[in-house]
Each structure stands twice: as structure tokens, then as C-alpha cells.
Amino acid sequence: MLKASKKEEKRFANMQEKRKPPVPLGSNLIRAFITGGLICVVGQAIMEILKMLGIPPDGAAGPTAAILIVISALLTGFGVYDDIGRFGGMGAALPITGFANAIVSPAMEFKREGFVLGLGARMFTVAGPVLVYGLVTSTVVGFFYYLLKG
């Protein structure tokens, strides 16, 4: 076996499956639930405050997201958000705060490779795909809406 055949690969994969440390699924899910839930509660609180300040309810989601982005960016700068991510997994990555972390962390990291091709270009390593696929999917959805609306 140098490059394993399909059969050898399978045999090794079986052996490996037996020795693999189990994924701590239960605790991962609980921590994701708590982290994701709490970030959304913070979002809800910001939204309620905005409403009290007179922003119409259906216009509050955007500014709420913006404020969360600012908070997450600061936490990333202070080196806290990666710890939240280590604890909460997708609970930290899935909210808009995770999107902000995905922009801020490479911007900070690759500043050392220059302000244009480092900071500027690498900022979108993870956030770029999110924007690309969000836009592509929503445009397709919008196209069908337009057709069906007739």
C-alpha cells in the first residue's frame, strides 16, 4: 500500500472509525443553542430599544444587525470573539456577529501582507462566499417572484 486502493482505503477507514475520539455532540449542541440564543436575545434587546426610540418595527432589523456587527467587530479586535466561537461553535458563527467576525479577523490577520492585497483582498475569504451565494440565490428567487407575479 502506497496509494491505497479503494478496498484498502475502506479497511483503514473502518479501523480509524473505531479509534476516532467521539464528537461531543450533546455538549456541542447545548453550547451552540445557548450561544446562538443569547446573541439573538441581545439582538432582540437592541431592537426593543430602537423601537422605543421611535424606529418603525419593520425597519429595526437592519440597524439592529449593524449594531451587532459593531459589537462583534470590537470583540474580535480585543481577541474575545474567537473564544466565543471555540465555546459556541455554530452558535457564534451563524448570527450576523459571526459574519462580522469573518470579515474583521482576516482583515486584521493579513494587514501584515499589505493594505491592498492583504487587508483589502483577504477580508472576504469567508464573508465573500456568503455574499456571493446570498446574492445569487436571492436573485433567482426574485426572478421567479417576478415571473409568477406576471
Binding site: 440564543g37 437592541i46 432589523a61 451563524l94 417572484y145
Partner: peptide, 20 residues
């Protein structure tokens, strides 16, 4: 509420709402 708009599916939702 924010539980649906803050996570990333809410971002996809906002894109489509805007287009509509």
C-alpha cells in the same frame, strides 16, 4: 423576532424581501 433576523438565514430573507 431577532431570533430569526440576526442569524444568517435572516440575511438571505432580508435580501429577498428587498428584491420583492
Amino acid at each position: 423576532g431577532a431570533g430569526a433576523t440576526v442569524p444568517l438565514p435572516g440575511f438571505g430573507h432580508a435580501l429577498v424581501e428587498g428584491i420583492v
